[in-house]
């Protein structure tokens, strides 16, 4: 594959539909004494957004805090997921494919962020890779964390709870999506 000018093909930059934000990397930071890291076994049968939220509340005594997770082992059942695809309507660079049910899968890894959604309710953004139940074919993508549940064998994750900032899903004019971003703390869901 060659790019114009005979150079080897390289990754592209894309023009997004909205104005380019000045801030290119938005940070939230916890200092060491504020960071709470835990190894968690999530409750089987629970929708992911509830299971990850319950883990966070167990670590904070019930208070709302945003958190990040590494998926270590276990499974999802069902595992409802999608991929990214070009937006045929042209309102965005990409949108999502229809959701696929991969059944009862064994999880190999992935990451998740627990924040506050645009509607004010807890929202879990999760990407993971896993094996489908019959042939072991490796699949992965963006999970529907309301429809996907922790499988009967449970799910083990490493959790980091953030104390000094919020994570909220907000409209992003540049991409015309709503995305998570860190914000100064202003109180969360109760």
């Amino acid at each position: 594959m060659r790019a114009p000018g005979g150079l080897p093909a390289a990754s592209r930059l894309l023009r997004q539909p909205g104005p380019v934000a000045r801030d290119r990397i938005t940070l939230g930071m916890d200092v060491c004494e504020d960071v709470r890291s835990c190894l968690v076994r999530l409750v089987p049968g629970t929708p992911l957004v509830e299971a990850f939220g319950a883990a966070m509340r167990a670590a904070t005594g019930g208070e709302w805090r945003p958190a990040a997770f590494e998926i270590l082992s276990g499974g999802f059942e069902p595992c409802i997921y999608c991929l990214a695809a070009p937006d045929p309507g042209g309102e965005r660079v990409v949108t999502y494919t229809p959701m696929t049910n991969a059944g009862a899968v064994r999880a190999f890894g992935g990451s998740a962020t627990l924040g506050i959604g645009a509607d004010g309710a807890p929202l879990l953004h999760c990407h993971a890779w896993f094996a489908e139940p019959h042939e072991g074919r490796v699949l992965g993508g963006h999970l529907d964390t309301f429809a996907s549940r922790v499988s009967g064998e449970g799910l083990r994750v490493r959790m980091t709870v953030f104390d000094s900032f919020d994570i909220r899903q907000l409209p992003d004019a540049e991409t015309n999506h709503t995305v998570f971003r860190p914000l100064e703390r202003s109180g969360g869901v109760q």
Partner: peptide, 11 residues
């Protein structure tokens, strides 16, 4: 371990 950073990287 020390500080922990959460970052959103833009397009």
């Amino acid at each position: 371990t020390g500080r922990t950073v959460y970052a959103r990287v833009h397009p």
